[in-house]
Amino acid sequence: MFIFAHRRTLTLLDGEYGSVFKGRSLDFDELRSYVPGDEVRDIDWKATARHGSPLVKRYVAVRRHSVLLLVDAGRNMAAHAASGESKKDIAVDAAGVLGYLACRHGDDVGLLHGSALTSRYLPPQSGEQHLERLLREVEAGISLDGPASAITAQLDYALRYLKGRLLIAVLADEFRPDAHTEMLLRRLRARHEVLWLTILDARMAREPGNPAPTQEASFDVGNGQRIPALVAGNSVVRAAYATAMRKREEERSVFFRRLGIAEQSVGATGDVLTAVFALLEKHRSGAKSAKDSNRAG
């Protein structure tokens, strides 16, 4: 299992994917004459002695993709998920699964997370230790009294400052995408490969029909507004909410389909594994079909 890259890598540093450069990783490739700027420790002293002029060993560099975990770290992510757990836990779980898969595949994993105020970028590096550090970073960055969420700020950051092709896995919640977001995502999608994992927010009102047990009052972490249980438990409100939510879900799936971005939603830590695998599968097949249609056109 690994994160599939549809486009062939163009650089030596792109990872264990289809590459224009043939050869196996960690293999000795060739000797060539020393050029100023080469590492001194790369000089093959025996060959130099035989040859008479400095020669350096060239290995085929380990070819790697870089996976970027793009995580919303505003206070929205400290709220409850659909299962009643914290969305932060689900985000850390999902980031861990994606990062572990990338590590096992020999890819570098980086992190871009932040809120409306700040974005923090940790460049891709290899190793599970690094992944562990990233996950801790995510865990520590999200709290209820933190700044507000704005995933567009992170998307903008990625567009502005991150060079090179990346596999970007976005972990965000059920925000309502607007035209600006769509534009950002379109540009991001053109430059990188984007996967989207939606962490489902807590249900605000129960499904109509089933006799409501006493519902807990809730408050909006965005603006601190209190939502009285009695009002949320009103049958008219519940019916309207159910309708509105179906419509919103429909809009979201249409939005990502239009952008050609694989999207999967997850509501509980127990579902993270299956959701990630479903997302990867969707990404592989969905984007391939998009490519096929491009080729056909």
Partner: peptide
Amino acid sequence: QTGRPVAHGERLT
């Protein structure tokens, strides 16, 4: 502030 924290309350409100 009591009750469960919920994001995107505008879904309901």
